[in-house]
Amino acid sequence: MTVQTVDDKSINENWEPKIIAFLCNWCSYAGADLAGVSRIQYPPNIRIVRVPCSGRINPNFIIKSLTDGWDGVLVSGCHPGDCHYISGNLVARRRFAILNELLEFFGIEPGRVNFMWASAAEGERFANLIKKVTKIIKELGPNTKFKKKWC
C-alpha cells in the first residue's frame, strides 16, 4: 500500500470532492429519481446509498464514511411529518443533533456532514441541495482530519 499525503487543495486545481449520500427510499431517493426524470442537471460528485428510512442511518455509517476517505456526507430523509414510517425521521433528527456536536468536538468542520430533507415531489430542491453541498465541500477542501492515510 502506498502512503498518500493529501493535505492541501492547492496540490490539484482540478480536485473534485467525492460525497456519499444516504437517502431514504420514500422521499429523498424518490426526489433524486424525480430530478432524474425531470433531467435537472446537478454536479456529478455524489454517490447515493439507498436506505429504507433516515432512521436507519447509524451514526457509525457517517463516521466510517469519513474515515474511509469520503470528502463529504449528505443525509437526507423525508420532511418532518412526512415520514413513511411515521416518525423515523424524527428519531434520526434527534440522533444527528447529538452527532453534530460530537463531530465538531472531533474537529470535523461544520458543513462536511450535512443533514437535509427532500420529498418525493422535490426533484428541483434535491438538485439544488446537491449543488449547495458540493459547493460547501469544495470550499472546505479534501477530507484529511479523519481519513486513514493508507486508503
Binding site: 436507519r56 423515523g88 428519531v91
Partner: peptide
C-alpha cells in the same frame, strides 16, 4: 424502517436487506 437499528448502541439490531455489514461494504 430501521429506526431501532440506527439507534442501537450495542449494534444488536440489524435490518435485513440493509445490514450494517452491507452498508459498510458500500462505503
Amino acid at each position: 424502517c430501521g429506526a431501532c437499528s440506527g439507534n442501537c448502541r450495542c449494534a444488536a439490531i440489524d435490518v435485513l436487506g440493509f445490514t450494517g455489514e452491507q452498508i459498510y461494504a458500500m462505503i
